[in-house]
Design a binder for these strands. Structure first.
Lengths: 344, 344
DNA sequence: CTGAAAGCGCTTACAG
DNA sequence: CTGAAAGCGCTTACAG
């Protein structure tokens, strides 16, 4: 087989224009599928470009256009598969509209978040999908607006009703989880994942306490366990609960990551989840169906949220004058074995 | 609080030059931290730029330079957290060298892979980290070389010893897993995740069969179960094994994803993993430590592989003339409860 | 150490 | 429907 020579990437629209016998304006119009050019001309130009091994130079187009086909995606926690699923949904949707995804993982690091946003601005990203890090200042929305960088925040709102936002009804979700446990006869129900600095945690915890109160169940502060938002956090939280004089009979977890840690600790102690202790998670990550036992959880539709976030941003790019677009998706309780419902 | 006006992003090096009383060449040199400029001049220029709200325009620099600070990252399967961890490691390393990560998830789709690689080429990516999709043609390396696009393949080699590659010793890893089970007294050992079209699966399966033979244990084709590389695949594979007249006493899984499905099925059937059936996974994803019971697995050091891949690519960018850089990381067996070792 | 000049490869009014 | 021209904001030899 003959070895193809290394191409120099040096074919430009000028070369195509010359070869096809048209002007470079025409070539440019063809490449952008303009309707101004006669069909036959367009075909000829495209064939010539193909034949000459032409590669569109986006750097040049970006400079000229003052923008790009790049969308920045800033994610706070990729070790949580909820956000990975969200990312997958968002990226797929962007690609199908010919945008590509510049990814940055902040790991909840605010300085890193500032840095990557600044970098995306330099890069002339057309817009940004932002899953904000913990402690992100509400001023960030002002900054991004001053930059003229369109954005949509996801999951965590930055207290700015004037910005585009896609999230889910965290309050309702945890209420559904708690109510379900109460319906199964539980009264000593714990909550693991308390974190007063995390707005989502605050809301979810509120859903939990309000639900208890609505059912005339006293709220026991000992049963609201602070923890890291991680599997290890859940494990430690459960360990703490198991060491109480009176261990609760059921646990509502801030999210599935924590729930997985909780299941692990229950198993390690030789107890049976669902029989000895009921556990409910939140988020509905793919692996929740494959826990041992399968995890009852509040499904938030991660991929759909990602897709929707992309869609909102694309809509915003098309029409900057649109009023704020805000979506709050309804969660869904998926009942599996970890809550013990199937033992009744 | 006064509302800052929307900046026009219109400050250029010309404006800074004028304001600072130097030429724009000097400004450019300062922005690129050239040592050609006197320190005081550099300071003055930087202060002026800061004061004027200057934003470096990478599109312009990219066009002029013919390259960019963008690295493409093409990943075959983000639903496998092994690759997510790898991505996290790679992205972090790139960012620390002032490169940013263009992400594309192929989901093992070859056409999508071609498309995103072409897009990264248009984008003038400086290089690409490629976790190839299944069935990727070995010719892809030739294509990328002809494009002049530096790349490193990760995990799956494309049979091209002349390309940079970072992976791990799959053969050794599965051998360690199998040998461990044999050491625990097992002789009926199954392998789930057989896939003759997946080069990694072929190698891992070879490690398994060779290890059996070395120990004079006959290889039983019935115990080599084909399956999707997913939790569901593992679950179905285990279901099949449990329905055999003589169920094996131990299972080596192609990876942790499959192992998690296997644990789930064992649990669902009312059996106890580690006591009734020993299970070993491969990859060492973070969640393997939080399975019920914790999963014995071959740790491949996902984040380290990602970091190393970035490092190799950066080295290649600095010195294109270097001979091929190839790393094969040594795996490590992490013994937990799922193999039953702690019951003895 | 600094300045004037050319050019990277596009797109877009504008004139025809 | 097509062509000539200007310009996006940088970087880099080159001359001084």
């Amino acid at each position: 087989m003959e070895r193809q020579p290394v191409l120099d990437d040096k074919v430009t629209i000028m070369d195509i224009a010359k070869a096809a016998g048209v002007s470079k304006s025409t070539v440019s119009l063809v490449l952008n599928n303009s309707s101004l050019v006669r069909h036959e001309t367009a075909v000829k130009v495209k064939e010539t470009a193909e034949k000459m091994g032409y590669v569109y130079n986006r750097s040049a187009a970006n400079l000229r256009n003052g923008t790009s086909n790049i969308i920045g995606m800033v994610v706070n926690d990729l070790s949580n598969s909820f956000f990975v699923e969200l990312l997958i949904g968002a990226e797929r949707r962007l690609l199908s509209s010919n945008y590509i995804t510049l990814l940055a993982h902040t790991g909840e690091d605010l300085k890193l978040q500032d840095q990557v946003l600044a970098s995306m601005r330099e890069q002339k990203a057309a817009g940004v999908i932002l899953c904000p890090a913990l402690y992100t200042s509400p001023n960030l929305t002002t900054t991004l607006k001053n930059w003229g960088l369109p954005f949509v925040t996801v999951m965590r709102s930055l207290n700015d009703e004037q910005s585009d936002f896609v999230g889910c009804d965290n309050y309702l979700g945890i209420q559904m989880a708690t109510q379900h446990l109460i319906g199964l006869g539980h009264r000593d129900i714990a909550f693991i994942g308390r974190d007063i600095t995390n707005s989502v945690s605050v809301v979810r915890q509120q859903g939990y306490t309000d639900c208890l109160e609505k059912n005339n169940i006293p709220v026991n502060p000992q049963l609201m366990v602070e923890s890291d938002i991680s599997m290890m956090g859940g494990k430690k939280g459960m360990k703490k609960l198991l060491s109480l004089r009176k261990c609760p009979s059921a646990v509502v977890c801030y999210n599935d990551l924590i729930a997985i840690g909780v299941l692990s600790e229950i198993n390690e102690q030789g107890l049976i989840t669902g029989r000895d202790i009921a556990v409910v998670g939140s988020d509905g990550v793919a692996s929740s169906a494959f826990c041992s036992p399968p995890l009852t959880t509040v499904v938030l539709h991660s991929e759909k949220i990602g897709e929707l976030a992309s869609q909102v941003l694309l809509k915003r790019l098309k029409n900057p004058e649109l009023p704020p677009i805000r979506h709050l998706l309804k969660p869904e309780l998926r009942i599996r074995k970890s809550c013990g419902a199937y033992l009744k």
